[in-house]
Write a protein that binds this DNA or RNA. Structure first.
Length: 427
DNA sequence: TCTGGGGTCCTAGGACCC
DNA sequence: TCTGGGGTCCTAGGACCC
């Protein structure tokens, strides 16, 4: 059996942890630049605040009902996420925990099968809440896709289920699938959902599970669709179980806080993003040989639908893969100079690292003199200090200090758990 | 006026090779 | 009169996830 543990309204819960007076009050958390709403408390959902909708559109509703609103505080969320995942690792063993996202983890429950699954689920939920203060929902079923279905049902009816749903018999699975609209199935997005409903009159997960795998192959993304249907039927598929350990691409991209016209600002931003991407690279003990940079100019929008402008990008392949920040910054900034056009207004830039290989087996190049690996120790030292603070305390000079392009974060709460000077005080 | 920032996988089609 | 077939690698684009 497999389980998914999912934090309830994670970012909102993190904010509430230090503001207990907000329990049972509507709360929302905004994306970078305070652009979109990315987390809503149950109360905010009930008021009709739209998920992933732009903040400015929801503002009248938010002000009318006095919804508590926060900018994203990733230092806080990252630290609490780490605590939740550690708790799961203590409970089930690190090998049985697959962190899927900041607020979700899959659990392998083989070896725990003999115990009562319901009890196990309740125990997990209670322990995580006791140790971290974060409420979670648990879905348990034979496959990952079905455990997601179980988790949805747990969240939909928190009172009755106590946030734990187990699908361990054919009858329970059939009933659960019958109650689940097709668009709520993990792996069915907007495109497939409307095709299924309006094209083929498929409305529930149960109906979807009865379709042939050939149908899945033809209309739901090839082998992806085949896996989806099999998993819904309770047949685990190997590919979906494979844990992703090292990333094949690492990106850091941001909208600017305000539009930028000065190449110096873009150079600084790209240098900063490169530092961040290189850190991610070193965290997974990898090196990269390809650096890509893109910029996005601001464009007039005439359509009523929101569209991102085109990315104008370019990339360069280095003779040798590296994970050193300074070796990656140089080509990245060079690419900015190639791409930048005087007189244009830019709203976003990004850096992507690819051609990723393990750091230990970097292919050496005959024509590049072998370097002493003294940069590595420096990098590790910087990473350790910055990680302990969950922020950049140390950075490269090319990242700049003026930061005209930096994000807006007007409503951010204190970094309670990672900064001494922002510790929570008890009166 | 104001719409995030990561990632993944898959397919199709073109270039190129033998 | 006759004009293969199979393989690899790369890129772009589409779909999905949180």
């Amino acid at each position: 059996m497999k389980a998914i543990v999912d934090c309830n309204n994670f970012y909102c819960s993190c904010e509430r942890l230090f503001k207990p007076h907000l329990d049972h009050q509507p709360v929302v958390v905004l994306s970078n630049n305070d652009g979109c709403i990315i987390s809503r408390s149950d109360e905010a959902k009930k008021l009709g605040v739209a998920m992933a909708g732009p903040y400015f559109k929801a503002k009248p509703l938010i002000e009318k009902y006095n919804v508590a609103t926060f900018s994203s505080n990733y230092n806080l969320y990252g630290d609490l996420s780490w605590r939740v995942m550690e708790t799961l690792r203590v409970l089930l063993g690190a090998n049985n925990v697959e962190v899927y996202s900041v607020d979700e983890a899959f659990l392998n429950l083989e070896g725990f099968e003999k115990e009562n699954m319901e009890e196990l689920g309740l125990h997990i939920r209670k322990t995580v809440e006791d140790w971290t203060g974060i409420k979670v929902s648990v879905g348990i079923a034979p496959t990952k896709v079905l455990s997601k279905v179980a988790n949805h049902l747990a969240k939909k009816n928190k009172q009755a289920t106590q946030c734990v749903v187990v699908l361990d018999t054919k009858e329970k699975i059939t009933e659960a699938l019958h109650k689940t609209p097709v668009e709520e199935v993990w792996g069915v997005g907007g495109q497939y959902a409307s095709k299924l409903k309006y094209g083929w009159n498929i409305h529930t997960a149960l109906e979807l599970s009865t379709l042939s795998t050939e149908f899945g192959h033809k209309f739901l993304g090839g082998v992806v669709g085949v896996r989806l249907i099999k998993e819904l039927r309770g047949e685990p598929t190997k590919e979906i179980d494979k844990q992703l350990t090292t990333k094949k691409m690492i990106a850091t991209t941001r909208m600017f806080g305000s539009p930028v016209t000065d190449i110096a600002d873009i150079r600084e931003a790209v240098a900063t993003y490169t530092s961040r991407a290189a850190e991610k690279l070193r965290r997974q003990f990898s090196a990269a040989d390809t650096v890509s940079v893109f910029v996005v100019p601001k464009e007039e929008s005439h359509s009523t639908y929101f569209r991102h402008g085109p990315n104008i990008g370019s990339s360069v392949t280095l003779p040798v893969a590296t994970s050193s920040t300074h070796e990656l910054i140089k080509p990245a900034v060079q690419l900015v100079d190639d791409l930048f056009e005087d007189g244009r207004i830019y709203k976003k830039a990004g850096v992507m690292l690819s051609g990723i290989v393990p750091d230990t087996s970097i292919q050496s190049d005959l024509f590049v003199p072998e370097k002493k690996n003294n940069g590595r120790m420096l990098m590790e030292m910087i990473d350790n200090i910055n990680f302990s603070q969950r922020d950049d305390v140390l950075k490269f000079a090319s990242s700049g200090t003026t930061r005209d392009w930096k994000m807006r974060m007007e409503l951010r709460s204190p970094r309670y758990t990672t900064r001494w000077e922002e510790l929570f005080t008890v009166k």
